[in-house]
C-alpha cells in the first residue's frame, strides 16, 4: 500500500496536538536506518477486522517504551507485528534492520500470562532453558554454556532457588519473573513483552522495571504493553498511547495527560478533581489465575 511520505496527511494524527511533531511519518523515513524497530503506516488485524490502523512508530536502540491503551486497542497486535508473528496488511515494517522474523534469534517475545498453560509439565529451569533452544539448532542438547546462561538469568530475576518448581505452583509475580528470565537467557537485542508488569505485586513490579531499565541502559530496546498507567508514567522513558490508531507518542509526562488519556480510553476514563481515574475493563483479566491482583481501578495523578 502507501509508503510513508511526509506530504501525505497522516489520518491518525490530530494536527493540533503538540506531540504531533515528536514522531511523525517524516521522521520515520529518516530515522529507520539506525532504528531497532521501524513501523511506517502499518495496519494489521485478524480475519476482516483491523486491530491496528496506520500506525507509525520508530524505536531507537536503548529505548524503554510502554504501549498503553484500552482493551482491544491493538497493543498485543502491534507487538505481534514487531515479533513477526502476524504479517501486516499494509505499511512497512523493519525490525533490527530487516523484515520482521529475519533477525528472530535477536528478538525475545513474552506473551501475556493468560495465554500460557500453567499446568504444562515444565519446571522454572525448563522454561528458561527454552530461551536457549533457538540458538542451539536441531538435534543439539543444551550444554554447559546454556546451563550457565539459565542460572544467570534466574539469578538476575531472583528465582534461582525455584529452578526445580513446576510453573503452575508459582505466584503471578514469580511467573512474570520466570518469563523475563527466559527472555534474558536468549540474550536478545530487542525485548517485546506483553503485559510484563500487569497484575503483580509492587515489589516484583519494581524489580522487573529495574531490570528493564538496566537493559535499556545497556543499549537493548524494550517494548512493553501495559495496563498500568502508574508504571508507565513512573518507569518508562517513553509512552505510546494507542487505540487502534496511534493517539500520542512521546515522553511519559507529555503523553499521560488527561486530554490524551481521554482520547485513548474514551468512556473508560473519569477525571475527578485533579485525579484521573481509569476504569479498567476487568474482563481482560477474567482468565487470570486466582491470587493475581485485579486492577479494576487505577489512579493516576495529573499534572
Amino acid at each position: 500500500m502507501s509508503s510513508p511520505d511526509g506530504s501525505r496527511a497522516p489520518v491518525h494524527r490530530h494536527g493540533d496536538h503538540p506531540l504531533h511533531e515528536s514522531g511523525g511519518a517524516l521522521d520515520a523515513t529518516h530515522a529507520h536506518a539506525h532504528a531497532d524497530i521501524w513501523l511506517a503506516d502499518v495496519s494489521a488485524g485478524y480475519g476482516e477486522r483491523p486491530a491496528i490502523e496506520h500506525v507509525t512508530l520508530v524505536v531507537e536502540p536503548g529505548t524503554l517504551l510502554a504501549v498503553v491503551g484500552p482493551n482491544g486497542a491493538g497493543k498485543s497486535t502491534l507487538l505481534k507485528v514487531m515479533a513477526g508473528l502476524i504479517a501486516p496488511w499494509s505499511g512497512r515494517v523493519e525490525v533490527l534492520g530487516s523484515p520482521p522474523g529475519r533477525e528472530a534469534h535477536r528478538v525475545a517475545y513474552v506473551p501475556q500470562a493468560e495465554l500460557v498453560d500453567w499446568e504444562f509439565p515444565v519446571t522454572v529451569g525448563d522454561v528458561v532453558m527454552m530461551g536457549r533452544y533457538p540458538r542451539l539448532g536441531l538435534a543439539r542438547r543444551p550444554g554447559p554454556d546454556d546451563r550457565r546462561a539459565v542460572a544467570a538469568a534466574l539469578e538476575r530475576v531472583g528465582m534461582a532457588e525455584h529452578a526445580r518448581r513446576q510453573i503452575g505452583s508459582l505466584s503471578g509475580g514469580q511467573r512474570r519473573r520466570v518469563f523475563l528470565a527466559r527472555a534474558l537467557a536468549a540474550d536478545p537485542t530487542l525485548f517485546l513483552l506483553d503485559e510484563p508488569v500487569t497484575g503483580i505485586d509492587a515489589r516484583t513490579q519494581e524489580d522487573l522495571m529495574d531490570i528493564l531499565e538496566a537493559l535499556a541502559h545497556s543499549g537493548r530496546s524494550v517494548v512493553a504493553t501495559t495496563h498500568d498507567l502508574a508504571a508507565a508514567a513512573q518507569r518508562f522513558h517513553r509512552v505510546a498511547a494507542i487505540n487502534r490508531t496511534m493517539i500520542a507518542d512521546g515522553p511519559a509526562a507529555l503523553v499521560l495527560d488527561p486530554e490524551v488519556l481521554a482520547r485513548t480510553y474514551g468512556g473508560h476514563l473519569l477525571v475527578l478533581g485533579g485525579q484521573t481515574v481509569l476504569l479498567d475493563d476487568a474482563h481482560h483479566h477474567d482468565q487470570a489465575e486466582p491470587g493475581e491482583q485485579h486492577h479494576h481501578v487505577e489512579t493516576e495523578r495529573t499534572r
Partner: peptide, 23 residues
Amino acid sequence: IALLWKELLYSTFDPLGAGASGL
C-alpha cells in the same frame, strides 16, 4: 522426534514465544 523434541516442546508450550524466536 529425537531430532526435534525440543523444538516441538517449545512450540507446544508457547507457540508465540517460539515463533518470535525464529522456530
